[in-house]
Protein backbone atom coordinates (compact mmCIF):
# COMPACT_ATOMS: atom_id res chain seq x y z
CA UNK A 1 0.00 0.00 0.00
CA UNK A 2 1.14 3.50 -0.62
CA UNK A 3 0.66 6.29 1.86
CA UNK A 4 0.24 10.05 1.84
CA UNK A 5 4.01 10.62 1.72
CA UNK A 6 4.24 8.43 -1.38
CA UNK A 7 1.57 10.56 -3.07
CA UNK A 8 3.52 13.68 -2.11
CA UNK A 9 6.70 12.13 -3.45
CA UNK A 10 5.07 11.23 -6.79
CA UNK A 11 3.65 14.74 -7.04
CA UNK A 12 7.11 16.19 -6.41
CA UNK A 13 8.68 14.19 -9.23
CA UNK A 14 5.80 14.64 -11.70
CA UNK A 15 7.71 17.39 -13.45
CA UNK A 16 10.97 15.48 -13.16
CA UNK A 17 13.89 14.91 -10.83
CA UNK A 18 15.96 18.03 -10.32
CA UNK A 19 19.23 18.17 -12.24
CA UNK A 20 21.66 18.58 -9.36
CA UNK A 21 24.10 16.48 -7.35
CA UNK A 22 21.62 15.31 -4.73
CA UNK A 23 18.18 15.29 -6.39
CA UNK A 24 16.63 12.94 -3.84
CA UNK A 25 17.76 15.17 -0.99
CA UNK A 26 16.19 18.19 -2.71
CA UNK A 27 12.87 16.37 -3.04
CA UNK A 28 13.07 15.06 0.52
CA UNK A 29 13.53 18.54 1.87
CA UNK A 30 10.27 19.67 0.25
CA UNK A 31 8.20 16.95 1.88
CA UNK A 32 10.05 16.48 5.16
CA UNK A 33 11.94 13.27 4.38
CA UNK A 34 15.63 12.46 4.26
CA UNK A 35 17.53 11.56 1.11
CA UNK A 36 17.74 7.95 2.31
CA UNK A 37 13.99 7.82 2.93
CA UNK A 38 13.24 9.11 -0.57
CA UNK A 39 15.54 6.49 -2.08
CA UNK A 40 13.93 3.79 0.04
CA UNK A 41 10.41 4.85 -0.96
CA UNK A 42 11.26 5.03 -4.67
CA UNK A 43 12.85 1.58 -4.41
CA UNK A 44 9.69 0.18 -2.82
CA UNK A 45 7.37 1.93 -5.30
CA UNK A 46 9.29 0.30 -8.14
CA UNK A 47 9.48 -3.07 -6.42
CA UNK A 48 5.71 -3.11 -5.87
CA UNK A 49 5.01 -2.10 -9.45
CA UNK A 50 3.60 1.31 -8.52
CA UNK A 51 6.33 2.81 -10.65
CA UNK A 52 6.75 0.99 -13.93
CA UNK A 53 10.04 2.60 -14.74
CA UNK A 54 12.18 5.44 -13.52
CA UNK A 55 14.44 7.15 -15.99
CA UNK A 56 14.84 9.46 -18.92
CA UNK A 57 11.49 10.18 -20.56
CA UNK A 58 12.19 11.11 -24.14
CA UNK A 59 10.20 13.30 -26.46
CA UNK A 60 10.02 11.20 -29.58
CA UNK A 61 8.87 14.05 -31.77
CA UNK A 62 11.96 16.17 -31.16
CA UNK A 63 14.25 13.19 -31.68
CA UNK A 64 13.20 12.64 -35.25
CA UNK A 65 10.22 10.39 -34.52
CA UNK A 66 7.83 12.96 -35.85
CA UNK A 67 4.92 10.69 -36.56
CA UNK A 68 2.84 8.60 -34.27
CA UNK A 69 -0.45 6.99 -35.04
CA UNK A 70 -2.93 5.58 -32.63
CA UNK A 71 -4.75 2.85 -34.50
CA UNK A 72 -7.98 1.55 -33.02
CA UNK A 73 -9.47 -1.76 -34.14
CA UNK A 74 -12.75 -3.58 -33.72
CA UNK A 75 -11.75 -7.12 -32.77
CA UNK A 76 -14.10 -9.86 -31.57
CA UNK A 77 -13.66 -10.21 -27.82
CA UNK A 78 -12.39 -13.79 -28.04
CA UNK A 79 -9.60 -12.79 -30.47
CA UNK A 80 -8.30 -9.70 -28.70
CA UNK A 81 -5.50 -11.48 -26.86
CA UNK A 82 -4.22 -13.31 -29.96
CA UNK A 83 -4.31 -10.22 -32.15
CA UNK A 84 -2.58 -8.11 -29.48
CA UNK A 85 0.20 -10.67 -29.11
CA UNK A 86 0.62 -10.80 -32.89
CA UNK A 87 0.93 -7.00 -33.03
CA UNK A 88 3.57 -6.97 -30.31
CA UNK A 89 6.05 -8.89 -32.44
CA UNK A 90 6.68 -5.56 -34.16
CA UNK A 91 9.05 -3.23 -32.35
CA UNK A 92 7.31 -0.21 -33.88
CA UNK A 93 4.19 -1.08 -31.88
CA UNK A 94 5.04 0.75 -28.68
CA UNK A 95 1.75 0.41 -26.82
CA UNK A 96 -1.16 -1.99 -27.03
CA UNK A 97 -4.31 -1.75 -24.90
CA UNK A 98 -7.80 -3.14 -24.76
CA UNK A 99 -10.44 -0.49 -23.99
CA UNK A 100 -14.24 -0.62 -23.88
CA UNK A 101 -16.28 -0.09 -27.05
CA UNK A 102 -18.81 2.74 -27.02
CA UNK A 103 -21.79 2.93 -29.38
CA UNK A 104 -20.23 5.98 -31.05
CA UNK A 105 -16.73 4.50 -30.94
CA UNK A 106 -16.95 0.75 -31.56
CA UNK A 107 -13.26 -0.06 -31.25
CA UNK A 108 -11.66 -2.12 -28.51
CA UNK A 109 -7.99 -2.65 -29.34
CA UNK A 110 -5.64 0.33 -29.40
CA UNK A 111 -2.07 0.29 -30.60
CA UNK A 112 0.49 3.05 -30.98
CA UNK A 113 2.97 3.14 -33.84
CA UNK A 114 5.96 5.49 -33.77
CA UNK A 115 7.99 6.33 -36.86
CA UNK A 116 10.29 8.96 -38.28
CA UNK A 117 7.56 10.27 -40.57
CA UNK A 118 4.01 9.59 -41.68
CA UNK A 119 5.07 7.52 -44.67
CA UNK A 120 7.13 5.20 -42.45
CA UNK A 121 4.22 4.77 -40.09
CA UNK A 122 1.90 4.00 -43.02
CA UNK A 123 4.33 1.34 -44.31
CA UNK A 124 4.61 -0.16 -40.83
CA UNK A 125 0.84 -0.21 -40.54
CA UNK A 126 0.52 -1.96 -43.92
CA UNK A 127 3.01 -4.58 -42.71
CA UNK A 128 1.09 -5.02 -39.48
CA UNK A 129 -2.20 -5.47 -41.36
CA UNK A 130 -0.69 -8.06 -43.69
CA UNK A 131 1.17 -10.14 -41.13
CA UNK A 132 -1.63 -10.08 -38.54
CA UNK A 133 -4.37 -10.70 -41.13
CA UNK A 134 -6.26 -7.50 -40.32
CA UNK A 135 -7.20 -6.40 -43.84
CA UNK A 136 -10.95 -6.70 -43.27
CA UNK A 137 -10.98 -5.46 -39.69
CA UNK A 138 -12.75 -2.15 -39.07
CA UNK A 139 -10.29 0.45 -37.80
CA UNK A 140 -9.52 4.15 -37.45
CA UNK A 141 -6.08 5.70 -37.84
CA UNK A 142 -5.40 8.78 -35.75
CA UNK A 143 -2.11 10.56 -36.36
CA UNK A 144 -1.08 12.94 -33.63
CA UNK A 145 -0.56 16.54 -34.65
CA UNK A 146 -0.10 18.83 -31.67
CA UNK A 147 1.00 17.94 -28.16
CA UNK A 148 -0.68 20.27 -25.66
CA UNK A 149 0.68 18.58 -22.53
CA UNK A 150 3.04 15.78 -21.51
CA UNK A 151 4.01 15.28 -17.87
CA UNK A 152 3.94 12.73 -15.06
CA UNK A 153 0.86 11.87 -13.03
CA UNK A 154 -0.14 14.24 -10.25
CA UNK A 155 -2.46 13.41 -7.39
CA UNK A 156 -4.54 16.21 -5.99
CA UNK A 157 -7.85 17.12 -4.46
CA UNK A 158 -10.92 17.26 -6.70
CA UNK A 159 -10.70 19.38 -9.81
CA UNK A 160 -7.58 21.23 -8.82
CA UNK A 161 -6.36 23.78 -11.27
CA UNK A 162 -2.68 24.47 -11.35
Amino acid sequence: MIDEKDYQLLAQIADGLPLCSHPYAVIGKKIGLSEAQIIERLTMLQKNGNIKRLGVIVKHATLGYRANAMVVWRIPEENVEIVAQAMLQFSFVTLCYQRPMLPEWPYNLYCMIHGKNKETVQCQLAQLIEVCGLAVVDKQILFSSRCFKQRGAVYTANGTKK
Binding site: L10, D15, G16, L19, K52, I57, Y155
Partner: peptide
Protein backbone atom coordinates in the same frame (compact mmCIF):
# COMPACT_ATOMS: atom_id res chain seq x y z
CA UNK B 1 24.22 16.98 -21.23
CA UNK B 2 20.82 16.36 -19.62
CA UNK B 3 20.25 20.08 -19.17
CA UNK B 4 20.93 20.62 -22.89
CA UNK B 5 18.61 17.74 -23.85
CA UNK B 6 15.90 19.25 -21.69
CA UNK B 7 16.41 22.73 -23.12
CA UNK B 8 16.23 21.31 -26.64
CA UNK B 9 12.98 19.49 -25.74
CA UNK B 10 14.56 16.09 -26.43
CA UNK B 11 13.52 14.85 -23.01
CA UNK B 12 10.40 15.74 -21.11
CA UNK B 13 11.93 14.87 -17.74
CA UNK B 14 13.80 12.35 -15.63
CA UNK B 15 10.77 10.80 -14.12
CA UNK B 16 8.55 7.92 -13.20
CA UNK B 17 6.10 6.11 -15.42
CA UNK B 18 3.13 4.94 -13.40
CA UNK B 19 1.01 2.07 -14.67
CA UNK B 20 -2.65 2.95 -15.23
CA UNK B 21 -4.99 2.27 -12.34
CA UNK B 22 -2.26 0.93 -10.08
CA UNK B 23 -2.33 4.11 -8.04
CA UNK B 24 -5.63 5.93 -8.23
Amino acid sequence: ALEALHQAQCISRIGAVIPPNKIG
